Amino acid sequence: MSSCDLKKPQNVNTAAVVSTGLIGGWLTARETGIRPLGGVVLAAAAAWAGRSWWAKTDGPTTALLESIYLAGFGLSHPLAKKIGAWPAVLTVTAASAGAAWALSDRR
């Protein structure tokens, strides 16, 4: 495999990708002060995980997992007002990564 070859989608640990997207996107936005840059990280992880979900499962499962991932992002904002930013991000990340593992990665 050359340095430019992508990992086969069936071999990608999407729970780790989801975690990287949610936590990494939040940290990128927070540390740079550029919220859209955090969105780029979030979107890149969604695309990478979605590619694997499509290969490992089916269309409805892929759509469900993408929805859970994006809902986690959306829900983290009001949740942060109640429990704080870090706990909110970690909570939605755990839920999203858990769903990715249960519906895709453990197969």
Rank of each mutant, 00 (worst) to 15 (best):
S104H: 10
S19T: 15
N11Y: 08
A29D: 10
P60K: 06
Y69T: 00
T28F: 08
I83S: 02
S104P: 06
E31N: 13
A71L: 15
R30T: 15
S67A: 15
L79Q: 03
L64C: 02
G38R: 03
S3A: 12
R30G: 13
A99N: 07
A47Y: 07
P36L: 10
L79S: 00
G38Y: 05
Q10H: 06
K82R: 15
K56T: 00
W86D: 13
G24N: 11
H77Q: 14
P36E: 12
V17F: 12
L64N: 04
L103Q: 04
T91L: 11
D5L: 11
V92R: 00
P36K: 03
A80F: 08
V17A: 05
V89L: 00
L6W: 11
M1K: 12
V40A: 14
P78R: 07
A94M: 01
A45N: 03
L79M: 09
A43H: 03
G72I: 05
W86T: 15
T93N: 04
T91H: 01
V40K: 08
L64P: 00
A63Q: 05
M1G: 14
A95R: 00
W48E: 10
G84N: 05
K56S: 07
P78S: 02
L27F: 08
G38A: 10
G72Q: 07
L70E: 01
S52H: 03
A102P: 03
T32F: 03
A16E: 01
L79I: 03
K7H: 01
H77V: 12
G24T: 13
P36N: 13
A71S: 15
K56V: 08
L6Q: 10
R107Y: 09
C4G: 07
G38T: 05
D105P: 03
S96M: 02
P87W: 01
T57C: 10
A88Y: 09
A55H: 11
A85T: 14
T14A: 05
W48Q: 10
L6N: 07
A55Q: 05
S3G: 11
D5G: 07
A47N: 00
A44F: 10
A63C: 01
G21M: 08
